[in-house]
Amino acid sequence: MFDHVKFGVSDFAASKAFFLKALEPLGVAVVSEGVPSYGIELSANDEVSLCLYQAEEKPAHLHLAFRAASRQQVDAFYHAALEAGGKDNGAPGLRPQYQGRYYAAFVIGPDGHNIEAVYHEPEA
Rank of each mutant, 00 (worst) to 15 (best):
G100I: 11
K16Q: 12
H120A: 02
K16V: 06
G93K: 07
G109Y: 04
V107P: 05
R71V: 01
E41K: 03
L26T: 05
A84E: 11
H63I: 07
K21E: 12
E121T: 05
V118Q: 12
Q97T: 09
F2K: 14
G8N: 09
K58G: 03
A65Q: 04
Y38N: 08
S32V: 02
A22D: 08
E123W: 02
V9G: 06
R71F: 02
V9E: 04
G93F: 12
G90N: 01
L82C: 05
M1C: 04
E47V: 09
A14G: 04
V118I: 15
L23R: 09
A14S: 11
E33P: 13
E123L: 10
Y119R: 09
L64H: 01
S15H: 05
V30Q: 14
L94Q: 03
E123H: 03
L52V: 12
L26K: 07
A69N: 10
F12G: 05
I115S: 03
G85D: 09
S49V: 00
G90K: 00
E56P: 05
V35L: 10
P110A: 09
L23F: 14
H113C: 08
V48R: 01
E83G: 13
P122T: 11
C51K: 12
Q99E: 14
V31D: 00
F2S: 12
E123F: 05
L26H: 04
V9D: 05
I115N: 11
D11A: 08
D111G: 07
D3V: 02
A65W: 04
H120V: 06
H63C: 12
E33R: 10
F18I: 08
V31I: 01
L42C: 09
S15A: 15
E83S: 14
A69R: 04
G85I: 08
Q72A: 15
A104I: 00
G90S: 02
V35Q: 15
A14K: 15
V31Q: 01
D111L: 12
P36A: 14
E24C: 05
H4L: 01
G112F: 11
Y102Q: 06
L26I: 08
L82D: 06
E41P: 00
A29P: 00
A91E: 13
R95T: 01
S37K: 14
